[in-house]
Amino acid sequence: MIKHHPNESLLEQFVEGSLPASISVAIAAHVELCPCCQKKTQALEEAKASQQFSDAAPLALDADMIQLMESIALTDDVDEVHDYIQPTFSYQGRDVQLPRAIANIDRTKFSGVGKVSRARLLLEDGELRSSLLEIEAEGEIPEHTHTGFEITLLLDGDFSDESGEYVPGDFIWQDGRHNHSPRTKSGCLCFTVVSSALHFNKGLSKLLNPIGNLIY
């Protein structure tokens, strides 16, 4: 069962559309996997909607508004919406279905160091970078801390760190106060959002730089 969810204020900002795109993608993917957060976001959307749209008194439309209204309804055309077919994603001999928000964004090919490889999502978003991260069985990411934050959404397989074990759908938010060294027994696939380069222990930084660059 999923144990780690985005907290209340994060979900609220998500529903308002006020979070950066990469974080919104991470939360949308969690929500797709988590029935409980689905209910919560629906309830939040209802609450926001009645906040914005509850006063009944229609204001009189000015000339600009009336012109706009008429121009919109000029044609009878409708937008065709194509059926969405969820593509299958294969890694390490396993077939999985990626959450829609992740699957629909273009990404680079996978490239890696050792047991860790990543594909970057082509999503321009300031300092935030998002990726699909694949770790082979018995692989790990060396202990590191962050100056910013790191979101990890486990999509498939197993994954654990100092705080415990995670299941697919778990939404893990790490910031500068934590240091952790995630590892996997039988291999896993994650979605990650990272806000700045990772910091490994100084003495080892040279050695570990490639993986640091890989993950950010």
């Binding site: 999923i2 144990k3 780690h4 969810h5 985005p6 907290n7 209340e8 204020s9 994060l10 988590c34 409980c36 957060c37 209910k39 919560k40 309830a43 209802e46 609450a47 910013g148 934050f149 939404f171 893990i172 938010w173 910031d175 500068g176």
Partner: peptide, 17 residues
């Protein structure tokens, strides 16, 4: 943005609407 943004439970509040 920084802070504990993750929560270990998911309670749907009911009856508040």
């Amino acid at each position: 943005m920084i802070g504990q943004q993750q929560s270990v439970d998911c309670n749907v509040k009911s009856g508040t609407r």
